[in-house]
Design a protein around this nucleic acid. Structure first.
Lengths: 223, 223
DNA sequence: TGTTGTGAAGGCGTTCACAGCC
DNA sequence: GGCTGTGAACGCCTTCACAACA
């Protein structure tokens, strides 16, 4: 009963040809893949790309590429394809990557350490502005230019710093309580690395990165 | 330790009603979730559970729970529900978690370090038996009880140690080449943490853990 | 000619609803 | 009465196929 399908966020004055119907999760995830391909191609100086080429590089089909993009507008030229740089910028806008997101990281263990040093993170506009942990030994120590705070102060600090996204890199046993603290702190989205199903109010967006599931599905397929 | 070669555990008497049609990926992923819930409940000493309760804890619907399980047999008792311990063991078998998997980790950076220290990994039967890196500075150093090898020796070492699963925790730019080395080394499954689409032969199973996609889909939903 | 954008068809997974059993 | 197991209905996503257009 908890995490049921979400309400569509109605678009009042929205962008010109944007967001007609509801966008499927698969479409968004593929856009993310196209975006990465296009970023690389702009670096290589490529000018235009067809749906066939983009599909080949992104592991999709040409029809799917065109369908995905058509949800948001008409970015291509018939007979030619898409302009690499323009399309990249369009998708960046669609994904909401042309702005900064203030992120709080909870859990200063091995995974938290890896995340806090992950350069790509900040490059895409996700800026870690607070780190929390439960352990007395870690609270007060400095990672990069941030001092690790007590998880007890999560609500206060997140509100003060205007945190919008929370990342949970703590043990599963603590994850639900952390999520609830984040919700109370006004966080709008949560990225959960703990291998446990979390329950949050409908207006809070939740995404999971669950290595255990992937490993187990790998194991299943190999059996 | 079970140093059993790549012999498929042939089912002599075989389970009665197993694996009829093809199992969807979503089903396997949900099974993985049920499994984690059941593991915890056995710890709590719970005896039986209904599809309604399991659905509530696992973020699914009762009908889905029953459908998922029915792909593999009839594990419940009408009027009562499922025996927690029995169901857990059944799912463990289905997912292939009642055996050891020999794993090679490539990339001894922050993420690789976090993975190599992740206890849950080994607990589910995934044993890291080799670690590789490209950097001269890291090759030869010791992590836990494993010495980091040169990625140049990947094929040789993986074959010698009978590695079945490869984990890629290296930069995206190196990921495709590493995947190809793994394929040449006879690895049967690959878990890829690099944010790039990999291309491998059909007989090699590939799963991805892509934090970038999750973050970007989060960003999209919040926009 | 080459490629996009899109309605229509098809395939697949989820949900429903109820028969079958405890 | 309660709950499972499952065929059938439903709805969504993918694929097809072609008109529109540079």
């Amino acid at each position: 009963m908890a995490t049921r399908p979400r309400e569509a966020a109605s678009h009042p004055g929205g962008e010109p040809p944007e967001e007609s119907g509801r966008i499927s999760d698969s479409t968004v995830r593929r856009l993310s893949g196209y975006y990465r391909v296009l970023e690389e191609l702009t670096g290589d100086g490529k000018e235009t790309i067809s749906s066939y080429q983009l599909a080949g590089l992104g592991g999709a089909t040409p029809a799917q590429v065109r369908k995905d993009l058509s949800c948001f507008g008409s970015f291509g030229k018939r007979g030619t394809g898409y302009n690499v740089r323009t399309l990249r910028d369009e998708i960046r806008g669609i994904l909401g990557l042309n702005r900064r997101w203030r992120v709080a990281l909870v859990g200063a263990g091995n995974l938290g350490s890896a995340l806090s040093q992950y350069k790509e993170f900040r490059k895409q506009g996700f800026e870690i502005v607070a780190i929390f942990d439960k352990s007395r030994k870690k609270i007060g120590t400095v990672w990069g230019d941030l001092e690790i705070s007590s998880v007890e102060s999560l609500e206060e600090v997140c509100r003060k710093k205007g945190v919008e996204i929370g990342v949970i890199a703590a043990p599963a046993s603590a994850s639900q309580e952390i999520a609830e603290r984040m919700v109370r702190a006004g966080v709008k989205g949560i990225l959960n690395f703990a291998p446990r199903k979390l329950f949050v109010p409908d207006q809070v967006v939740l995404r999971n990165v669950n290595m255990a599931i992937e490993l187990e599905s790998l194991s299943f397929a190999l059996k």
